[in-house]
Structure formats: C-alpha cells, structure tokens
Design a protein around this nucleic acid. Sequence first.
DNA 1: ACATTGACCTGAGAGC
DNA 2: TGCTCTCAGGTCAATG
Length: 263
Amino acid sequence: MPELPDVEVFKRYFDATALHHEISKTEVTDDSLLGDISSNSLARKLKGRKFQLTDRYGKYLFAKVNDSGWLILHFGMTGFLKYFKNDDEAPDHIRMLVHFTNGYRLAYDCQRKLGLIDFTKDLEDFIKQKELGKDPFRSSFRLEDFKNTIRQTRGGIKAFLMNQKWIAGIGNIYSDEILFHAGIHPEADITEMNDETLKNLYSSLKTVLKTAVNNKVNPAEFPQNYLLPHREDGEKCPKCSGTIQKKTVNGRSSYFCNKHQKK
DNA sequence: ACATTGACCTGAGAGC
DNA sequence: TGCTCTCAGGTCAATG
C-alpha cells in the first residue's frame, strides 16, 4: 500500500493526532526493523520530548523530535499508523509503540516487517545517503528536470517510474495508474518517447498522485475513469472499449488497458 | 546499463 | 470449517 500518496495521508494523520504530546515511553517490539539505532537509544531520544512537525520524502515519513532529531519511518508493503487509547483498538502487528502522557499511543504496524524504523540528525543527509531522486510534490520537480533525468536512462518506462533513485515515491500501483492515464504501455521503451509524450506523462504523474491524496487514497472515492477500482484481469477499461490485462512487467503484477495504452 | 530472479517476512484470502 | 496454496502495493543483492 504505502507509496507516496499513502505516506502523504499517513503524514496528515500523524499531524492530526500525534504532534505536540509529551512522549512517556517508546517500545520497539521487533528490532529487525531498526536501521542504525538500537531500541534503547531510540527510546532515550524520544522520552520526555514531543513530535513538533513532520515531513515526507518519497515513501519516507519523518517526525521531528525537539532537541533530538528526526524519527524515520518507512512502511514497506504493509505498514501503517494508528493512534489510539483503548487496548481493543490496537492493531494486530505492532512493531513500535510510542506512549504519550495524555494516555494515547501511536502504533507503527507492519505485518510483513519490510519497513524501516530509524533516526537521523539531518534529513538532507539521509535522503542523499538513500540516493533518492526528486519527490514529485516538491517544487523542484519540474518538467525540464524530469525530461533530463529520463533522457539519461534506457529500458522500460515502468522500471523507470518505480526506481527510487530517479523519482522518489512511485510504486507498483501508482506507476500502473499513471501509465494508464498517460496512455502508455508499461513495457514501452523510454528512448522512443518524444517530448510531447514525456510532457503528457509528467502531467499524468502529478495529477494522479494529487488525486489519490485528495481522495484519501480510497479507491472507492477515485474518479470514475481511474484504473485502481478496476484493477483486475479481464475487467472493462473505464476509459475506452478496451479490456484490462494483467502481465508481469519489471517483476511485478501490472495491469493495463490492451487498447489505449501504446508501446 | 538493464532485466530477471530470489530473498527478506508474514498472513489474508482464494480454492478445494 | 479447515486445510493448503498463492499472492501481496517494497527493496536489495546476485546473476545473466
């Protein structure tokens, strides 16, 4: 689930719930998710402090702890946040639990343990170290840069969109959605794309991600002509008279319309 | 430089 | 109801 739009929604959830409360205790219930910090050390950095604000870059969420640094969360394939008070509201696979003095807790749930819990003094350093490309929601993500970056590479367009070192935040679901709206086949060769195609792709990319966030990443609320609610082999294309097909592209299950998405 | 495969983990959901 | 099997939206390393 957690691609850029999902993490953006998590960020807003975090902002609406877990900011500005004093932290009383932090439990990491699975050390295997920790990056370059021990659970004890992390707990010490949070105790008695507050989350002041959050930031997001690609699929990473950051929460600033006053006089301490940034808590880093990556959600892998199954991660999410839950702010709750009563035990019966606790999610099933909690890997980290932050307790607040107000009686509430913030759970980081990650069933498949493919996420990351980490801590850094400097966000920019972390982003550099992870070699993340531009985030599509930042103003620095411009058409000219997008074209320049794509001209530096070869291969299939879906692989390009999903590679975090080129663009940060796009995963399997939203690469399919973006290509669906741009009318481009996921196996299309980058080097064959002209300026107009790239401009169109850039525009679809931004629109799709924004639309997903605006609709709280809930497919049921997506516009009628979106792929996500029809993401099944053999479904009718919501844009044209074509049929949705499933095929493994770039090692991932990909869905596309066999009619209006061209190689 | 790029594509492909498998590994990392676990359990929801499908199919029988 | 219960069992087995397949599959999953991410990332990384090894191999071709």
